[in-house]
Amino acid sequence: MADDLVVVRGVTFAYEERPVLFDVDMAIPRGKVVAIMGLSGCGKTTLLRLIGGQLKPQRGDVLVDGLSVPSLGEEALYRLRRRMGMLFQMGALFTDLTVYENVAFQMREHTDLPEPLIRDLVLMKLHAVGLRGAWHLRPAELSGGMARRVALARAIALDPMLILYDEPFAGLDPISLAVIGRLIRTLNDALGATSVVVTHDVQESLKVVDYVYLMSEGRVIFSGDVAAVHASRDPYVRQFVDGRPDGPVPFHYPAPPWQEMLDHDYA
Protein backbone atom coordinates (compact mmCIF):
# COMPACT_ATOMS: atom_id res chain seq x y z
CA MET A 1 0.00 0.00 0.00
CA ALA A 2 2.94 2.35 0.63
CA ASP A 3 3.56 2.25 -3.09
CA ASP A 4 0.25 3.92 -3.96
CA LEU A 5 0.67 7.49 -5.12
CA VAL A 6 -3.02 8.31 -4.88
CA VAL A 7 -5.34 6.81 -2.27
CA VAL A 8 -9.05 7.58 -2.20
CA ARG A 9 -10.60 6.44 1.04
CA GLY A 10 -14.35 6.29 1.71
CA VAL A 11 -15.08 9.44 -0.27
CA THR A 12 -18.66 10.72 -0.39
CA PHE A 13 -19.46 13.85 -2.35
CA ALA A 14 -22.56 15.81 -3.36
CA TYR A 15 -23.11 19.01 -5.35
CA GLU A 16 -25.61 20.97 -3.24
CA GLU A 17 -28.37 18.36 -2.87
CA ARG A 18 -27.32 16.08 -5.73
CA PRO A 19 -25.20 13.18 -4.49
CA VAL A 20 -22.44 12.11 -6.91
CA LEU A 21 -20.06 9.76 -5.13
CA PHE A 22 -20.87 7.17 -2.46
CA ASP A 23 -18.12 5.79 -0.26
CA VAL A 24 -15.55 5.38 -3.04
CA ASP A 25 -12.27 3.56 -2.35
CA MET A 26 -9.43 3.56 -4.85
CA ALA A 27 -5.68 3.09 -4.94
CA ILE A 28 -3.46 4.25 -7.80
CA PRO A 29 -0.05 2.52 -7.70
CA ARG A 30 3.08 4.52 -8.50
CA GLY A 31 4.30 4.34 -12.09
CA LYS A 32 1.10 2.83 -13.48
CA VAL A 33 -1.48 4.12 -15.93
CA VAL A 34 -4.91 3.62 -14.35
CA ALA A 35 -8.22 4.17 -16.11
CA ILE A 36 -11.40 5.22 -14.35
CA MET A 37 -14.22 4.25 -16.66
CA GLY A 38 -17.93 4.64 -16.54
CA LEU A 39 -20.93 6.21 -18.22
CA SER A 40 -21.34 9.94 -18.58
CA GLY A 41 -22.37 11.50 -15.29
CA CYS A 42 -21.18 8.67 -13.07
CA GLY A 43 -18.83 10.93 -11.11
CA LYS A 44 -15.50 10.25 -12.88
CA THR A 45 -14.63 13.88 -13.52
CA THR A 46 -15.70 14.80 -10.00
CA LEU A 47 -13.22 12.24 -8.73
CA LEU A 48 -10.42 13.92 -10.75
CA ARG A 49 -11.31 17.28 -9.27
CA LEU A 50 -11.19 15.80 -5.78
CA ILE A 51 -7.68 14.48 -6.47
CA GLY A 52 -6.65 17.91 -7.81
CA GLY A 53 -8.10 19.63 -4.74
CA GLN A 54 -10.59 21.74 -6.71
CA LEU A 55 -13.41 20.11 -4.75
CA LYS A 56 -13.53 18.87 -1.16
CA PRO A 57 -15.34 15.64 -0.21
CA GLN A 58 -18.09 15.74 2.43
CA ARG A 59 -16.72 12.54 3.93
CA GLY A 60 -13.58 10.49 3.44
CA ASP A 61 -10.05 11.45 2.47
CA VAL A 62 -7.90 11.79 -0.64
CA LEU A 63 -4.15 11.20 -0.25
CA VAL A 64 -1.65 12.22 -2.90
CA ASP A 65 1.95 11.28 -2.19
CA GLY A 66 1.00 10.88 1.45
CA LEU A 67 -0.60 14.34 1.75
CA SER A 68 -4.28 14.68 2.61
CA VAL A 69 -5.52 16.94 -0.21
CA PRO A 70 -8.78 18.20 1.40
CA SER A 71 -6.99 19.41 4.52
CA LEU A 72 -4.15 21.24 2.74
CA GLY A 73 -4.00 25.03 3.00
CA GLU A 74 -3.94 27.10 -0.17
CA GLU A 75 -0.16 27.48 -0.12
CA ALA A 76 0.50 23.77 0.35
CA LEU A 77 -2.17 22.82 -2.18
CA TYR A 78 -0.56 25.04 -4.82
CA ARG A 79 2.82 23.52 -4.02
CA LEU A 80 1.36 20.04 -4.52
CA ARG A 81 -0.30 21.07 -7.79
CA ARG A 82 3.06 22.10 -9.24
CA ARG A 83 3.86 18.39 -9.18
CA MET A 84 0.63 17.48 -10.99
CA GLY A 85 -0.28 17.94 -14.62
CA MET A 86 -3.82 17.88 -15.91
CA LEU A 87 -5.17 17.47 -19.41
CA PHE A 88 -8.63 18.99 -19.68
CA GLN A 89 -11.41 17.60 -21.78
CA MET A 90 -11.40 20.48 -24.27
CA GLY A 91 -7.68 21.15 -23.95
CA ALA A 92 -8.29 24.46 -22.16
CA LEU A 93 -5.38 26.11 -23.96
CA PHE A 94 -4.98 29.82 -23.27
CA THR A 95 -6.52 31.30 -26.38
CA ASP A 96 -4.61 34.58 -26.16
CA LEU A 97 -1.19 32.88 -26.14
CA THR A 98 0.70 31.02 -28.86
CA VAL A 99 1.45 27.30 -28.63
CA TYR A 100 4.97 28.17 -27.46
CA GLU A 101 3.75 30.52 -24.72
CA ASN A 102 1.13 28.00 -23.59
CA VAL A 103 3.81 25.40 -22.93
CA ALA A 104 6.14 28.00 -21.39
CA PHE A 105 3.36 29.34 -19.12
CA GLN A 106 4.17 27.36 -15.99
CA MET A 107 7.92 27.75 -16.44
CA ARG A 108 7.51 31.52 -16.52
CA GLU A 109 5.07 31.53 -13.58
CA HIS A 110 6.92 29.17 -11.28
CA THR A 111 10.61 29.29 -12.19
CA ASP A 112 13.28 31.91 -12.81
CA LEU A 113 14.83 29.91 -15.63
CA PRO A 114 16.75 31.96 -18.18
CA GLU A 115 15.06 32.43 -21.55
CA PRO A 116 17.39 30.11 -23.56
CA LEU A 117 16.70 27.26 -21.14
CA ILE A 118 12.96 27.83 -21.32
CA ARG A 119 13.23 27.75 -25.09
CA ASP A 120 15.07 24.42 -25.02
CA LEU A 121 12.57 22.91 -22.59
CA VAL A 122 9.52 24.12 -24.52
CA LEU A 123 10.87 22.78 -27.81
CA MET A 124 11.65 19.45 -26.14
CA LYS A 125 8.14 19.13 -24.76
CA LEU A 126 6.64 20.08 -28.11
CA HIS A 127 8.93 17.60 -29.84
CA ALA A 128 7.73 14.86 -27.50
CA VAL A 129 4.16 15.36 -28.75
CA GLY A 130 5.33 15.82 -32.35
CA LEU A 131 4.45 19.50 -32.67
CA ARG A 132 7.82 21.26 -32.53
CA GLY A 133 7.01 22.83 -35.89
CA ALA A 134 3.74 24.32 -34.65
CA TRP A 135 5.27 26.51 -31.93
CA HIS A 136 4.13 29.78 -33.53
CA LEU A 137 0.47 28.85 -34.09
CA ARG A 138 -2.43 30.15 -32.02
CA PRO A 139 -4.88 27.69 -30.41
CA ALA A 140 -7.62 28.76 -32.85
CA GLU A 141 -5.45 27.53 -35.74
CA LEU A 142 -5.04 24.01 -34.35
CA SER A 143 -7.14 20.93 -35.13
CA GLY A 144 -8.79 19.14 -32.22
CA GLY A 145 -6.11 16.45 -32.08
CA MET A 146 -3.28 18.97 -32.25
CA ALA A 147 -4.82 21.11 -29.51
CA ARG A 148 -5.06 18.03 -27.29
CA ARG A 149 -1.38 17.29 -27.91
CA VAL A 150 -0.31 20.86 -27.13
CA ALA A 151 -2.36 20.68 -23.92
CA LEU A 152 -0.53 17.45 -23.13
CA ALA A 153 2.84 19.14 -23.71
CA ARG A 154 1.71 21.92 -21.36
CA ALA A 155 0.57 19.41 -18.72
CA ILE A 156 4.02 17.78 -18.64
CA ALA A 157 5.91 21.11 -18.77
CA LEU A 158 7.27 20.81 -15.22
CA ASP A 159 7.79 17.01 -15.34
CA PRO A 160 4.91 16.16 -12.98
CA MET A 161 4.83 13.04 -10.80
CA LEU A 162 1.09 12.65 -11.45
CA ILE A 163 -0.76 13.30 -14.72
CA LEU A 164 -4.55 13.52 -14.70
CA TYR A 165 -6.46 13.05 -17.95
CA ASP A 166 -10.08 14.16 -18.25
CA GLU A 167 -11.64 12.39 -21.26
CA PRO A 168 -8.49 12.51 -23.43
CA PHE A 169 -10.16 10.54 -26.23
CA ALA A 170 -13.41 12.50 -26.54
CA GLY A 171 -14.20 13.80 -30.01
CA LEU A 172 -10.98 12.76 -31.81
CA ASP A 173 -10.49 11.19 -35.21
CA PRO A 174 -9.09 7.61 -35.26
CA ILE A 175 -5.51 8.67 -35.96
CA SER A 176 -5.43 11.32 -33.22
CA LEU A 177 -7.01 8.76 -30.95
CA ALA A 178 -4.15 6.34 -31.51
CA VAL A 179 -1.56 9.11 -31.16
CA ILE A 180 -2.95 10.32 -27.82
CA GLY A 181 -3.24 6.74 -26.57
CA ARG A 182 0.37 6.04 -27.37
CA LEU A 183 1.52 9.36 -25.87
CA ILE A 184 -0.23 8.63 -22.58
CA ARG A 185 1.71 5.41 -22.31
CA THR A 186 5.13 6.61 -23.50
CA LEU A 187 5.11 9.88 -21.58
CA ASN A 188 4.13 8.10 -18.39
CA ASP A 189 6.99 5.65 -18.74
CA ALA A 190 9.55 8.22 -19.93
CA LEU A 191 8.81 10.64 -17.09
CA GLY A 192 8.47 7.91 -14.47
CA ALA A 193 5.12 9.44 -13.64
CA THR A 194 1.78 8.03 -12.62
CA SER A 195 -1.29 8.61 -14.78
CA VAL A 196 -5.01 8.62 -14.07
CA VAL A 197 -7.18 8.48 -17.19
CA VAL A 198 -10.85 9.26 -16.84
CA THR A 199 -12.67 8.04 -19.95
CA HIS A 200 -15.64 6.24 -21.39
CA ASP A 201 -13.67 5.10 -24.43
CA VAL A 202 -13.19 1.42 -23.58
CA GLN A 203 -11.41 0.12 -26.65
CA GLU A 204 -8.81 2.86 -26.84
CA SER A 205 -8.01 2.96 -23.14
CA LEU A 206 -7.79 -0.81 -22.71
CA LYS A 207 -4.90 -0.74 -25.20
CA VAL A 208 -2.73 1.49 -23.03
CA VAL A 209 -3.69 1.20 -19.34
CA ASP A 210 -2.43 -1.18 -16.63
CA TYR A 211 -5.43 -1.19 -14.34
CA VAL A 212 -9.12 -0.35 -14.58
CA TYR A 213 -11.74 0.97 -12.17
CA LEU A 214 -15.27 0.75 -13.50
CA MET A 215 -17.81 3.08 -11.91
CA SER A 216 -21.55 3.28 -12.05
CA GLU A 217 -23.84 5.77 -10.31
CA GLY A 218 -21.18 7.00 -7.92
CA ARG A 219 -19.83 3.59 -6.86
CA VAL A 220 -16.89 1.45 -7.94
CA ILE A 221 -18.44 -1.75 -9.28
CA PHE A 222 -15.38 -3.45 -10.72
CA SER A 223 -11.62 -3.18 -10.57
CA GLY A 224 -8.85 -5.25 -12.08
CA ASP A 225 -6.18 -5.33 -14.73
CA VAL A 226 -6.92 -5.47 -18.44
CA ALA A 227 -6.95 -9.28 -18.58
CA ALA A 228 -9.48 -9.35 -15.73
CA VAL A 229 -11.72 -6.96 -17.62
CA HIS A 230 -11.73 -9.20 -20.65
CA ALA A 231 -12.29 -12.31 -18.53
CA SER A 232 -15.06 -10.82 -16.42
CA ARG A 233 -18.51 -12.41 -16.64
CA ASP A 234 -20.16 -9.57 -14.74
CA PRO A 235 -23.17 -8.48 -16.85
CA TYR A 236 -22.53 -4.75 -16.28
CA VAL A 237 -18.84 -5.07 -17.27
CA ARG A 238 -19.81 -7.05 -20.37
CA GLN A 239 -22.47 -4.50 -21.40
CA PHE A 240 -20.04 -1.62 -20.93
CA VAL A 241 -17.02 -3.23 -22.59
CA ASP A 242 -18.95 -4.73 -25.50
CA GLY A 243 -21.13 -1.66 -25.90
CA ARG A 244 -24.50 -3.44 -25.83
CA PRO A 245 -27.56 -1.16 -26.06
CA ASP A 246 -29.54 -3.01 -23.37
CA GLY A 247 -28.58 -4.87 -20.22
CA PRO A 248 -28.17 -3.95 -16.56
CA VAL A 249 -28.16 -0.34 -17.79
CA PRO A 250 -31.61 -0.22 -19.37
CA PHE A 251 -32.34 1.29 -22.76
CA HIS A 252 -35.44 3.04 -21.42
CA TYR A 253 -35.39 6.01 -19.10
CA PRO A 254 -37.71 5.20 -16.15
CA ALA A 255 -41.29 5.89 -17.25
CA PRO A 256 -44.81 5.33 -15.89
CA PRO A 257 -47.01 2.61 -17.51
CA TRP A 258 -48.27 3.22 -21.05
CA GLN A 259 -51.94 3.59 -20.11
CA GLU A 260 -51.15 6.34 -17.62
CA MET A 261 -49.07 8.30 -20.14
CA LEU A 262 -51.67 8.01 -22.89
CA ASP A 263 -54.31 9.48 -20.56
CA HIS A 264 -52.11 12.40 -19.62
CA ASP A 265 -52.72 15.83 -21.14
CA TYR A 266 -49.43 17.06 -22.69
CA ALA A 267 -50.56 20.46 -23.93
Partner: peptide, 22 residues
Protein backbone atom coordinates in the same frame (compact mmCIF):
# COMPACT_ATOMS: atom_id res chain seq x y z
CA UNK B 1 -16.43 34.35 -18.93
CA UNK B 2 -15.14 32.51 -21.98
CA UNK B 3 -11.94 31.57 -20.18
CA UNK B 4 -14.15 30.09 -17.48
CA UNK B 5 -16.44 28.30 -19.96
CA UNK B 6 -13.47 26.73 -21.79
CA UNK B 7 -11.90 25.60 -18.47
CA UNK B 8 -8.91 27.95 -18.91
CA UNK B 9 -9.40 29.32 -15.38
CA UNK B 10 -9.68 25.79 -14.04
CA UNK B 11 -6.52 24.80 -15.92
CA UNK B 12 -4.72 27.78 -14.43
CA UNK B 13 -5.78 26.72 -10.94
CA UNK B 14 -4.48 23.22 -11.59
CA UNK B 15 -1.19 24.74 -12.74
CA UNK B 16 -0.95 26.39 -9.32
CA UNK B 17 -1.50 29.88 -10.74
CA UNK B 18 -4.35 31.69 -8.95
CA UNK B 19 -6.67 33.12 -11.67
CA UNK B 20 -7.72 36.09 -9.54
CA UNK B 21 -4.11 37.28 -9.40
CA UNK B 22 -3.20 36.36 -12.99
Amino acid sequence: GLMKATEQLSAMEMMAVPPVAR
